[in-house]
């Protein structure tokens, strides 16, 4: 069970949240010109990374607001959570500390 630090509400139990996959995927601007190949890649293909994962969460049973998290999918350790409007935090230092 994860303890997740909602940037709006503070630390809450994971069961209050739902995860919505990879973050920072922008919908293409030129949708009328996209090929099937490009549409498929945008809709279905993901990094599915083993390691540092930037992902989206919603605090469904709390404030119901979206935010992003940076989590190591190999250990489930969460390095940072941040609002969608925030700059992406630099977690290099935290990442190195956890590896040592």
């Amino acid at each position: 069970m994860l303890l997740i630090d909602c940037p709006w509400c503070g630390e809450r139990d994971q069961t209050e949240f739902s995860a919505h996959g990879e973050a920072h995927i922008a919908r293409p601007q030129n949708t009328a010109e996209l090929s099937d190949e490009e549409w498929g890649d945008y809709v279905f293909f993901r990094k599915n990374i083993k390691g540092i994962h930037y992902e989206r969460w919603v605090h469904d049973f709390g404030c119901r607001r979206w935010f992003n998290a940076i989590r190591d999918t190999a250990s489930d350790q969460i390095f940072a959570t941040y609002k969608p409007s925030d700059a992406v935090p630099d977690i290099t230092a935290a990442d190195k500390a956890s590896e040592s």
């Binding site: 279905f44 993901r46 599915n48 990374i49």
Partner: peptide, 18 residues
Amino acid sequence: GHSSVLAEMAGFRLPLES
């Protein structure tokens, strides 16, 4: 479960989530 990890080594992505 590790298919995406091997695909990354080969330079492409898969439509998978582990």
